[in-house]
Amino acid sequence: MTEKDFLSKSYNDLPSEGKVTWKAPSNIALVKYWGKKANQIPANPSISFTLDACATTTSVSYTKKEGDSPQFSFDLIFEGKPKEDFKPKIQTFFERIEKYLPFLKSYHFIIETSNSFPHSSGIASSASGMAALSLCLMDIEKKLNGSMSEDFFKKKASFLARLGSGSAGRSIEGDLIQWGKYAAIEESSDLYGVRYPFKIATVFKNFHDTILLVHKGQKQVSSSVGHNLMHDHPYAERRFAQAHENLDKLKTIFENGDLDNFIRIVESEALTLHAMMMTSMPYFILMKPDTLEIINKIWSYRASTKVPLCFTLDAGANVHLLYPESVKEKVIQFIQDELVVHCEKGHYICDRIGDGARKLR
């Protein structure tokens, strides 16, 4: 599909008002995307686990405006309070998607949103937030186009979410989502995420993600700035090739339930992501001393116990611990005994793989 497939015609008989609510999860990338082209196109393909507990719930109330209006009209309520500093990002998002949803200027919207995790937790809420908002807007369009298929609905929701936040396109469905054009998956696209089409061993169907909150403050460098620094990065092309190679390797790993090689690739991807940050110009370090302490303790624990626990990192200091259901009790004990001391105020969040977004009645 191309961008043109997602264009919509103007609508007749717009409803006067309504309300819709969706809950969308965050996700954690296994193969990272770092670097993007114009219009939120990824420089390399990525693959992620869809999470379950870390989610954003968004309600959109819409009331038809009188006459034509050249402006978008919306109020934003975050966790019960007006949030003016979020509005510019929504304004930019609406500007990007207007040609795909031509009803946007016909309504005044009240957007009410909240996260299941603390906003100050250091977990990026842009993926779940933009996915939930996109699903609400697509729900409105589906009311205007009753013949829309479920498959098209999900693809367009992912397409729109990506225009708000790249990784948000991976938060529509579960449980393993691939985004970015990749030769081995014919239906893959730079425009939206797709469900991983190949065989996945049972062990990967019941994975957990416990997020160790090392640092809850704002990052010193935004992800958008970090992505842009890949344009002239001396190691960019090799990194983009590496992502394709790791996706090739994961096909066999997922099929065979090969936890040892899964661990090698996932941890390598996490460290490569941060290596790109440390070797860009300007360069920066988002890991904290406690991040490194946790990583070293994981390596030591895994070597001594053979428990298949691994880590991954987003563009920040927090550590995601990934492990199968069968070792959950051992890992939680390890966290409490050894790792919680490295978490800000001892905080961590227990999550697991989920099935994707859902509409709330």
Rank of each mutant, 00 (worst) to 15 (best):
M1A: 12
S10H: 15
G18K: 13
K19F: 03
T21Q: 11
W22L: 06
N27A: 11
Y33F: 09
P42S: 12
P45V: 07
D52Y: 14
C54K: 13
T57N: 07
S59G: 00
E66W: 04
F72V: 06
F78H: 11
G80E: 07
K87V: 08
T92R: 14
F93Y: 15
F93L: 05
F94K: 01
I97V: 11
I97R: 02
S106G: 04
T113E: 03
S114K: 15
P118K: 04
H119A: 10
G122V: 01
A124F: 05
A127W: 06
C136A: 05
M148Q: 13
E150N: 11
K154Y: 07
K154Q: 11
K155D: 00
L163N: 07
D175A: 09
Y182A: 06
H215V: 00
Q220L: 11
V221Y: 05
S222H: 09
M230K: 07
L250Q: 09
L250Y: 04
I253M: 05
E255D: 13
M281P: 00
M281I: 03
F284H: 03
L286R: 08
I298C: 10
S300C: 08
Y301Q: 10
R302L: 03
D314V: 00
A315R: 01
N318W: 07
H320S: 03
L322P: 04
Y323P: 01
P324S: 05
S326P: 00
V327Q: 10
V331I: 05
I335L: 01
V341A: 13
C343Y: 11
K345H: 14
H347Y: 12
C350L: 11
